[in-house]
């Protein structure tokens, strides 16, 4: 009886642990995995510039209950996979006090996230803008060559949120 109980307990415990890789696999297979994995900006492995392909990258900007003006300086750029690109965003604090914000990136279509490698981005850190301060901030990125061929239009979107309690 005790042995059977022990086997059952060990089995159940093991089953619980087996669920972790099981669902990881499901999320990977179905493409849900990027929900958990942050944008891999670190491994910008060197790839050849593929000049045969053009990808239009649209820039989008949003603020979330934050009195900032935030806009891209160019509405879109046409890039080749593997090409290093710099785009600029302009941000302006309309208030008379310093405000700290954090930008959250988002991609359309969502799967584009995996092929978007950022080398420099204002979204990596919090940004503090003084009263009425206006600033131009760059994003430097590469779209890697593994991006599917039919992916020829990507929207890069940022939403600025206020970081509460920081002036």
């Amino acid at each position: 009886m005790l042995v059977r109980l022990a086997i059952a307990a060990v089995g159940m415990f093991g089953f619980g642990f087996a669920l972790v890789p099981f669902y990881e696999k499901i999320c990977e297979v179905t493409g849900l995995r990027n929900l958990l994995v942050s944008n891999a900006s670190d491994n910008a492995e060197n790839t050849q510039v593929d000049t045969t392909r053009n990808i239009v990258v649209e820039m989008d900007a949003n603020t979330h209950s934050l009195a900032w003006r935030f806009k891209p300086l160019q509405s879109n750029v046409t890039v080749h996979p593997g090409q290093l690109v710099r785009v600029d965003y302009e941000i302006e604090n309309t208030l008379d006090r310093a405000v700290t914000g954090q930008a959250i990136p988002s991609y359309g279509p969502k799967v584009a996230e995996r092929h978007f490698r950022k080398l420099e981005c204002f979204c990596f850190t919090q940004q503090t803008l003084g009263p009425k301060e206006k600033r131009i901030m760059p994003v430097v990125f590469v779209i890697d060559g593994t991006a599917p061929v039919d992916m020829n239009e990507i929207t890069l979107s940022y939403t600025f949120f206020e970081v509460a309690g920081k002036g």
Binding site: I26, V29, T30, G31, L32, P109, K110, V111
Partner: peptide, 21 residues
């Protein structure tokens, strides 16, 4: 246990995810 996301087809999941669920 492997069908939950069919309640979320409008949240904008990748095509592969939709097809699996």
């Amino acid at each position: 246990f492997v069908v939950w996301a069919h309640h979320m087809f409008t949240t904008g999941m990748p095509a592969k995810t939709q097809i699996f669920f």
